[in-house]
Structures are given as structure tokens and as C-alpha cells.
Design a protein around this nucleic acid. Structure first.
Lengths: 113, 113
DNA sequence: ACTGTCCCCTAGACACTCTAGGGGACTCGA
DNA sequence: TCGAGTCCCCTAGAGTGTCTAGGGGACAGT
């Protein structure tokens, strides 16, 4: 059983993955899974819609090419816009996790302040 | 501008809030906002549906009562089931944030492994 | 030839959050 | 006394994103 991705997280992960250079979808998914020691498993039904969405938004650019295994593959490249987006999403993620951490470590009390 | 909550996070935050004792919805929202220094702002349109959902699922129990301000209010109490759920969601959150951290700190490379 | 892996895609179901409303009741100051 | 502000509850509908469950085609090795 894998962790279900929280909405909005996937884009950030893909963008980050692409900072290493152009990659095709399948490779992105494999890399994420390997990097997280199988903690995350990106389903193809989430991956490809995400990549298309991001292409539409100009965060990545897509080009057909040939994979290392001699197969037809669509390579995605990060755009300047994509880099900006990644930065934004990362800091947003940072803020969120910190806020959640505050809650989880707090001692809620009915009496409040 | 506040951080938009990621889907699935809200339930966990509410459950955690209720570990301090019964609380009504409005107080839950206030406490979360105060505790996170305004980083999170739980909209009422998210809060109440979430509380009702959790009641249906047996994670919390609801009772009408009177608030500290002498107003009619529905107090929510954590159930045993709710405690279990909180534990589960917390560790799931832990796993996710760690996985995401791995990705964000990794050095992706086209060459892979 | 056949199986396995690689690689792409989509429709529809599902779940959750937010926007944008609506309402009632208490309190305090003018 | 009456109006404004705060407290407290609620819902419908839109929007967005993920997953399930499918469907393909093409290369590699046996």
C-alpha cells in the first residue's frame, strides 16, 4: 500500500524531477518511485493528465523522441515558467507542512488562548 | 493570502484539535488559525461539511450545547474510532512528507540510478 | 511466435475544498 | 431601543485533481 498523493503535490514532484533535464513520463514515474523507496507510486492515470495539464499551462514543453530503450517517447522539458512555478509550490508546501507541524505538536485545550 | 489546504489534511487537523476535549466548529476553526499564526484559515464551507462527514463516519460525536459566549453551539467529541483515524492519518502524513522531502532534496538526473 | 517490458493515452467515478450564499441569536454602544 | 458586530450554524454548486480501469502499439529476448 502506497501513500495516496495529496492533491496539488504531484505537479511539484514532477517539476522537481524535471530539474535534472528532459525526461519522458514513464521515467519520471520510475524516478519518483525509486527516489522515495517505493513510498510514492504515481499512477499513469494521474501522471499523464498532470503532464498534459502542465504543458497547457506552459510549465513544461513536450517533444517526441526516442528513449534509452529505443522506444518512442515524449520528452518533457522544464520551462522558465515551470521553474518559477516549482519555486512557488515548494515554498507553499514548506509553509503548509510547518503549519501542520505546529498543529500536530500543539496541545489543544478547550480553554483556548 | 493563506495556504490552501491540501485535500485530506483537514480531517487530520480537526481530529487533532479535538484531542483537547469537546469543541464546537467555530472554536475549532479559530484554534487552528491561532495555532498556525494565521497560516491556515479553515473556511466554514470546508469546516462544516468535514465535521458532518466525520460524524457520519463515527470519528466524532456531536451534541448541542451552549458556548462560552452563551450561544447555541454543536460540540464535537472525538470517539475511539476518531483517535484511531487520527493516528493513521498522522503516520500517513509523516510518510508522505518524508517522501516529498526526499524528492525535493534529491538531485534528479536523466541518467537515473 | 509469444511474453514481458516499455511507453502512451482517455473516460468516468470519486472525493474534497472553496465560493457564495442564507439564517438566527446574543451583546454592546449610541 | 435599535442597529451593528460578533458568534455560530448550514447548504448548493462549481472547480480541481486523483484513481480505476480500461485501450493501444512497439521493441527484445526465448
Amino acid at each position: 500500500m502506497q501513500v495516496d498523493l495529496l492533491q496539488g503535490t504531484l505537479d511539484m514532484l514532477i517539476l522537481k524531477t524535471l530539474t535534472g533535464g528532459p525526461m519522458h513520463g514513464y521515467a519520471v514515474a520510475s524516478w519518483l518511485q525509486r527516489t522515495t523507496d517505493d513510498a510514492l507510486c504515481v499512477e499513469e492515470g494521474s501522471l499523464y493528465p498532470a503532464l498534459h495539464r502542465m504543458t497547457r499551462r506552459g510549465w513544461v514543453k513536450a517533444d517526441w523522441g526516442v528513449s534509452e530503450n529505443n522506444r518512442r517517447a515524449k520528452f518533457y522539458t522544464l520551462t522558465a515558467e515551470g521553474r518559477r512555478q516549482l519555486k512557488e509550490e515548494s515554498s507553499s508546501w514548506e509553509r503548509l507542512t510547518q503549519a501542520v507541524a505546529k498543529v500536530l505538536h500543539a496541545q489543544p485545550a478547550t480553554q483556548g488562548a
